[in-house]
Nucleic acid binder design. Structure first.
Lengths: 227, 227
DNA sequence: TCAAAAGTGTTTCAAGTACACCCATGA
DNA sequence: TCATGGGTGTACTTGAAACACTTTTGA
């Protein structure tokens, strides 16, 4: 069997989130061919006949960002009859969190452009993609309260203020600096490094790391993350 | 076009939960035809070419229970290549919460039997259905902490002890009666009725109702349910 | 009068909230 | 020396948790 054979009725779409300059961004592509030529959309692909859906989502991710092994989670499947006007297509939506500095984005072969957009300034999108994006944002907003996943958007080591602004950007509200520090540090999830910021015109902040292994151990001993 | 035409690669499966005698039950069907003849499974169906996936799930529900308009939510899509050995089938999983006393269950035409099983005593299931059930239970356990959906499993009016045992059954842990009362009553989500239990050999409990409209109003004014 | 569940009250401790304030550093 | 963010401390309030107790009812 041709391993590239696709399931015609099923696609995956992948919201790729990044964080920089205190703002949350999402990666969008501009279609270069077909009936939606020129329209912006969430990166996606058909699911192949011999391919797990999680792997299909991973493939999309890799084709846009060249990276693998990152935070990727399915959040909802969209299947209204009229969502895709050129046939019946059900799409399984995923979201990914990446360290925006680590990736070189690149357009796929049928794409005219690929670009980061701040989530509060999104162009018109093809199909029901605006709805998918809103749903994904709501999902992320909820997830970040109950799972320590925000770290995936930051470099391996980061300051507490970076983490704070990340939470503020996702939750869309101001948080108290002092209480945020106490809350996070008390959880023992963050590992101090001995590095500090350099050449900043204010007191240099300490860098911290989040270690998934530490979290897994804590979880085994009954710890439940909650912000 | 034949409106019964199906999308061959896509099905919906629907976990139907009920609650009675302090226990959580799930509805399972025994296949009466085909290669899985004789095996227990989660009720499901193919998605039709002209049918929204939510409607497909609703159709499954109605065919098993004769009821409509009940709590139904999609929770996850399962799409491993080898999950279904007779072809490539991706299934979109839903769960429903119903008042078990209100329904007469009935087998579909290709089913040998349909039966309620306590969730902690489940027979072997076809395909990856055990995994789907476990995933659905975990989803429900989480949802009930953040959304007031438990009421859908109870009759329109119920006592606080019924609600308590419902939470205990789903969360699988004992809760303090007094604290549970206080917490729930303080939320102003429950409407007192003037009815009491009758002919019980202990002090008669007051019946309460949960009114979705009340909850919607509260939500608009910023209230967030949390248990 | 006893069992069983309804329903109330109280005490303790942990955690969230809102601040005020000092510290370090480059421009 | 000033602005800027880093970092600490405290007082207040809320809410979770544990548990003792009283009330009502049919058997």
């Amino acid at each position: 069997m041709n391993t590239n054979k696709i399931i015609e009725a099923v696609s995956v779409d992948c919201l790729i989130f990044g964080f920089v300059d205190s703002k949350l961004y999402v990666l969008l592509v501009k279609h270069g061919t077909g009936p939606t030529h020129g329209q912006w959309a969430i990166p996606g692909s058909w699911v192949r006949y011999n391919e797990d859906i999680d792997l299909a989502a991973n493939r999309v991710l890799k084709s846009q960002t060249s990276i693998n092994k990152i935070y990727l989670e399915q959040f909802k499947t969209f299947g209204k009859v009229e969502r895709y006007p050129y046939g019946r297509v059900i799409t399984i939506a995923y979201y990914a969190l990446i360290d925006i500095e680590k990736v070189k984005i690149r357009p796929g072969k049928s794409e005219e452009a690929v670009e980061w957009f701040p989530v509060n300034n999104i162009p018109d999108l093809a199909f029901d993609h605006k709805k998918i994006l809103d749903s994904g944002l709501a999902f992320l907003r909820n997830r970040i309260l109950h799972e320590p996943i925000g770290f995936n958007l930051l470099p391996p080591s980061f300051t507490l203020l970076q983490l704070l602004t990340l939470y503020e950007a996702i939750l869309q509200k101001k948080l108290d600096k002092s209480n945020f520090r106490k809350k996070f540090l008390k959880m023992d999830l963050l590992i101090e490094t001995n590095k500090h910021q350099k050449k900043v015109s204010h007191r240099a902040a300490k860098y911290y790391r989040f270690d998934t292994e530490v979290y897994d151990k804590l979880k085994l001993s009954g710890f439940i993350f909650g912000f």
